[in-house]
Design a binder for these strands. Structure first.
Length: 489
RNA sequence: GGCGCUAUCGUCUAACGGUUAGGACAGAGCCCUCUCAAGGCUUAAAUACGGGUUCGAUUCCCGUUAGCGCUACCA
């Protein structure tokens, strides 16, 4: 039985890299009928916030990701401590009475050069009696793992992504297991819980690859079975730097994508393509296909760039995937997604109206929020002001615009207000006027939409309704005559 | 500094010794067309560098360079 876990520390919003890690864990679990575990690694009491935890849940829920078991590390402190005691009792760890600052402060060049930084000389070898006596006297100490270094040996493991890994104990420092206040460090808590929760596969970011040697040591010392490891390449900024909120801003937070109008599945699909490939040139996959296709063999070893810029905050591929998803959605489904977006912008629109507008914008929006710009004239009671010259059709002039609008005002009241009815009426009008169809449509489009680029004209007029159309066209014509132009010029 | 990992078009990636180095996004052009989109077609664009091994290296080995990670009583 496969058991995997996602172990975020609630010290910030849900990072897109973390989300991807969750997804790969989830895909692997679902693929093999395993168990997905959410373990909140909240051993850093200083930086944990409830708000951050909520943001993680929000992001995960939005993506439609679920889990089968949930734990909180802070509730499992006794277990961690007990495992540390076990390791200490076996003599595989020792008490280090060095005060916190003294050790760190001078750990610079000189020590680095000598290699002495690997452990704390003297502390490591104090006698059992002295150690016990000082501990009993209440002296503060941290429990350090005693890395077997007298005779250097290789610590090895096989990573499902990176292959055979090996590191000499001569290059592994005596890391801490328990802090001087008795709380467990990340390394200890993580491994203790992985053993206790019978985790079979640890799937996490590549930034833990080097830490894994320490973890292998802990697993062995604790007498537990060492899980399998699969490290994932990191998600980085265009300059190769690690993604951080401080320098890269909101683009690293999952909620930013949600709020910008990404569809959960499109975004998940995008994340999956970063550092993983099904190897057959497929890019758009449903959730089921993703779980069928996922394997660690397809995971890449080099970091993946999330390609954003200051002008363009979202990776073009993510946007494209989103647009593709929008285009393939059933109109009612898309409309249902769009409705709350429009309403959230303070616009009063009902579901029936939204359903009419949706097919007109479907191919023209990349993010759900784009509907606010693309369909603005459907919602506005008063059109935003536009230049009168906008009304001029291609190879035409103000007079031609005026004639077209006047003609429209003449035929539209009696026209069949449907796509086909409008098309035949307007095309006939252009023939009557002796101008091209496009020259007839352009002024009407601007009069009705307030700008030159808009959804297809006939459908737009139909949805807008006769009354609104006539009013807007009349208003545009008035703008023209105000400039002294008359249709006969 | 030490140790570890990585290196194919601008970006995401395919090619697990033999290909005109493929696809996608983004870019450019053309077509379609009531504008914008969408769609179709075309186009430009990459194996970091240097050595090996081999009949033959993107692919295997070594070195260089570069990037990233770890090197905390953070996770």
């Amino acid at each position: 039985m496969i058991r995997v876990r996602f172990a975020p520390s609630p010290t910030g919003y849900l990072h897109i890299g973390s989300a991807r890690t969750f997804i790969f864990n989830w895909l692997y679990a679902r693929r093999h009928g395993g168990t997905m575990i959410l373990r909140i690694d909240d051993t850093d009491i200083e930086r944990n916030t409830e708000e951050s935890l909520n943001s993680i849940f929000d992001g995960l829920n939005w993506l439609g990701l679920n889990w089968d078991e949930q734990y909180r590390q802070s509730e499992r402190l006794a277990l961690h401590k007990q495992i540390a005691e076990t390791i200490l009792a076996k003599g595989l760890a020792y008490r280090d009475f060095t005060p916190p600052n003294a050790a760190g402060a001078e750990k610079d060049d000189a020590q680095h050069a000598s290699g002495a930084w690997l452990f704390n000389p003297g502390q490591r070898e104090i006698s059992q009696e002295e150690s016990d006596r000082r501990a009993a006297a209440g002296e503060k100490f941290v429990v350090r793992f005693r890395v077997p270094r007298e005779v250097p040996e290789a610590v090895t493991f096989t990573d499902l992504v990176y292959g055979e890994q090996s590191k000499s104990t001569a290059d592994i420092e005596d890391f801490a297991l328990l802090r001087s206040d008795g709380t467990p460090t990340y390394h200890l808590a993580s491994c203790a819980d992985d053993v206790d929760l019978r985790i079979t596969h640890i799937v996490r970011g590549q930034d833990h690859l080097t830490n894994t040697f320490k973890h292998v040591l802990i697993f062995k010392a604790a007498g537990g079975e060492t899980p399998q490891f699969a490290h994932l390449p990191l998600l980085v900024a265009p300059n190769g730097a690690k993604l951080s909120k401080r320098i890269h801003g909101p683009v690293v937070s999952v909620t930013t994508y949600r709020d910008a109008g990404f569809l959960p599945h499109a975004f998940m699909n995008f994340l999956c393509l970063l550092g993983w490939s099904p190897k057959n040139d497929r890019e758009q996959m449903t959730r089921d296909e993703l779980t069928q296709l996922f394997s660690f063999e397809g995971v890449n070893r080099s970091n993946a760039v999330v390609n954003f810029t200051d002008e363009d905050p979202f990776d073009a591929k993510a946007v494209w995937l989103n647009a593709e998803t929008i285009r393939t959605m059933a109109v009612p489904d898309l409309s249902a997604e769009l409705l709350p977006v429009v309403q959230a912008a303070g616009i009063a629109v009902d579901a029936a109206k939204m359903l009419q507008i949706t097919p007109l914008v479907q191919e023209r929006i990349r993010l759900l929020n784009d509907v606010l710009q693309v369909a603005d004239f459907f919602f506005a009671t008063e059109l935003a002001p536009y230049e009168t010259t906008e009304l001029i059709p291609k190879k035409g002039d103000l007079a031609m615009a005026a004639r077209a609008l006047e003609k429209a005002l003449e035929v539209l009241p009696g026209a069949d207000f449907t796509h086909d009815g409008l098309e035949s009426a307007l095309r006939a009008s252009s023939t009557d006027l002796g101008i091209k169809a496009g020259q007839m449509f352009e002024p009407i489009r601007v009069a009705v939409c307030g700008r030159k680029t808009a959804p297809p004209l006939f459908g737009t007029l139909e949805v807008l309704g006769k009354e609104t159309c006539l009013a807007r066209i009349a208003k545009a014509l008035a703008k023209l005559t105000a400039t002294g132009i008359t249709p006969l010029n």
